[in-house]
Amino acid sequence: MPTHPPPEITRRPMGLRWAVAGSLTLHLIALGVLLPAFKTRPPAVPDQPVVITAVVVPPAEPPRTAPAPPVAPPAKPPAGPTPPARPAPVPTSQPGRAFMDAPPAPTAQEWAQAATYTLKNAKRYRHHWGQHLRSLMGTAHEGPDQGAVRFRIEIAPDGQLARLDTIWSTSPSVEQRARAAVRQMPPLPPTPTGLPLVFEKTIVFDPWTAETPPLYQNDCEPDPPQHGNRFVWDGRTPQVVAEQAVAVKLDPAAYEECLKQLPQDSIEAEAASDKRQQEQWASPTLGR
């Protein structure tokens, strides 16, 4: 039999083997890096609402106290005559309300001095009349019974009340109280001039206003002239210009005699006069 020669074994070079091995290694590394990125992630869980549960704590029960022991009834007084009940005292003030007591009435000596004071339309007589009336009206309380009334008074020469007219009033009850006090006034001395005395007087009945005595130190001075329109004309009579008013002064002898009649002013009267002048002439911005 013919013999064939053995096939020739071809050998590949070593460089090709290393190239194939390196390529496989790089592919494996790439697969290991990229494969986790393609894995599916679990779906996101939606946000759940926060539920707040309010816990109500019941109030603590108050401590229980033992019941008070029964009180024995008071012993009955022995039989006998019942004493007469005493009348309850009448309070001069009411709790929680402002009040002002009535001023004292003028004394008999003060009325006698007022009956001889002829200056300024019997100024002292008029003041004592209002003070006496206010004293008879009693204590003034804060509330619906307070107010003021202005009278026009005419007193006969013998001291008797001839006429009493109401000019205005802020409270019917105050007017009724004042008229009732007028009927209670005792007989008054004769007027200083021996003529009917006509004047106006405001009676204030509240817990804040007090009747202050007037000042007498300027009563010998002449009254200031009343300035008006000198050129006023009624349109019918001949038109004339009135004379300028001038204050009339007393002669020195009459002035000295008048000063002897002036009474001594009280501290209350001077303080009230200073307060009136300050309220009248003080600047609105003073004290700011």
Rank of each mutant, 00 (worst) to 15 (best):
M1Q: 09
M1W: 06
P2G: 12
H4C: 13
T10V: 08
R11G: 03
M14R: 10
L16S: 08
W18T: 07
S23Q: 07
V33Y: 01
A44V: 11
V45M: 14
Q48D: 15
V50W: 07
V55Q: 14
A66Q: 06
P70N: 06
V71R: 14
P73E: 08
P74Y: 08
A75L: 12
A75S: 12
P77C: 05
A79W: 01
P83N: 05
P84I: 00
R97H: 12
F99N: 05
D101F: 12
P103H: 09
A105D: 10
P106L: 08
A112Q: 09
A114H: 03
A115K: 01
N121Q: 06
K123W: 01
Q131C: 08
H132E: 14
L133N: 05
L133I: 08
L136M: 11
T139K: 04
H141K: 06
G143E: 05
D145C: 01
D145I: 04
A148R: 14
V149W: 15
R150H: 13
R152C: 04
I155Y: 11
I155R: 15
D165F: 02
V174P: 09
Q176V: 06
R177K: 14
A178T: 00
R179H: 08
M185V: 13
P187A: 15
K201H: 02
T202E: 14
F205W: 13
F205G: 09
A210N: 11
E211W: 04
P213K: 05
P214Y: 03
Y216D: 02
E221I: 00
D223C: 00
P224E: 03
G228Y: 02
G228D: 05
R230G: 01
G235M: 07
Q239L: 04
V240D: 07
V241I: 07
Q244V: 00
A245N: 00
V246P: 00
V248H: 09
L250M: 08
P252I: 10
Y255N: 15
Q264D: 06
A269Q: 04
E270C: 03
A272N: 09
D274L: 13
R276V: 00
E279R: 08
E279S: 02
E279Y: 01
P284F: 07
T285R: 08
T285H: 10
L286W: 15
